[in-house]
């Protein structure tokens, strides 16, 4: 009893305690006294000049998953999930549009390629402006979306797509000549002997053969796109000038139409148009 009162007297001297507190402490006993000392020490530390030491226990730490409320960012989470779902749906829709029959587009293509394909081949079919939009323009031939769509599998190919390709392949230094489809259409026509010169001039003008500048000596191969108008099929006539032979490259050879193809090629190549143009 004495020791406690002695210790108490020391504390009271330093903290300027009042008498009623002391009476209370003695009345409640030792446990209550210790609690009081701890609370007094905490109050003292909050008013002290020194900064509180930041420890692991007192630091503001990020809440763990078990302490975090599930209602915190529910809207943001919903928006994120919706955006992802929308993206997946859009991707699947494009892929579905690009698939033909049993054949499906591979998922390995990049997003840029996918967007490019969807821009070129998928548009609103009821919008006439979208179909008339020019996608390729070489300055000589231009292709709108409607004709560009003929490159899709399963649809017949328009001749201006082939003409654009021949324009791209044209090179002044190349030994290979790629002629447009007009050469076939003009060469296949029946021309009276008296009109041959006019027909030749017309073919020369239409196919813009001036650009080759009559360099037949430097030419090795001439590629002429041909068309079978009976079955509606494109094939290629390759005239090898160097080896003096001609080949027909056909992706869909048909026994019944082989003779017709050969005849058409003979007419186009042996016609006056071919000979006199150079």
């Amino acid at each position: 009893m004495f020791t406690i009162s002695k210790g108490f007297a020391v504390i009271s001297a330093t903290k300027n305690l009042h008498l009623p507190y002391i009476k209370d402490i003695f009345a409640s006993g030792r446990t209550r006294f210790l609690e009081w000392v701890v609370s007094e020490n905490q109050n003292c530390s909050s008013t002290s000049i020194r900064d509180p030491t930041v420890t692991r226990a007192t630091a503001n730490r990020k809440l763990g998953p078990h302490k975090r409320t599930p209602y915190e960012d529910i809207n943001a989470l919903k928006a994120k999930a919706n955006a992802k779902t929308r993206q997946v749906i859009a991707h699947e829709r494009i892929m579905k549009r690009l698939s033909v029959g049993l054949f499906r587009m591979s998922n390995n293509i990049s997003e840029d390629d996918r967007d490019l394909l969807s821009f070129a081949f998928c548009c609103n079919p009821l919008d006439p402006k979208a179909w008339g939009e020019l996608l390729v323009d070489t300055g000589v031939v231009a292709i709108d979306r409607h004709h560009f769509g003929s490159l899709a599998p399963g649809s017949p190919l328009f001749d201006d797509v082939i003409n654009v390709m021949t324009e791209y392949l044209y090179d002044t230094t190349s030994t290979k000549w790629f002629l447009p489809t007009y050469f076939w259409s003009e060469g296949a026509k029946f021309v009276r002997p008296s009109n041959r010169m006019t027909s030749c001039a017309r073919t020369h003008k239409l196919c813009r053969l001036v650009r080759f500048n009559g360099r037949l000596k430097d030419c090795m191969q001439i590629y002429i796109p041909m068309h079978n108008d009976v079955i509606g099929h494109w094939y290629l006539l390759v005239c090898d000038i160097f080896h003096k032979k001609a080949e027909i490259w056909d992706s869909l050879p048909d026994v019944h139409h082989n003779k017709k193809c050969e005849n058409d090629c003979h007419i186009s190549v042996s016609g006056e148009a071919f000979v006199q143009c150079y």
Partner: peptide
Amino acid sequence: ALELVDGA
């Protein structure tokens, strides 16, 4: 005036 041709 040229008529467009299409084919497979």
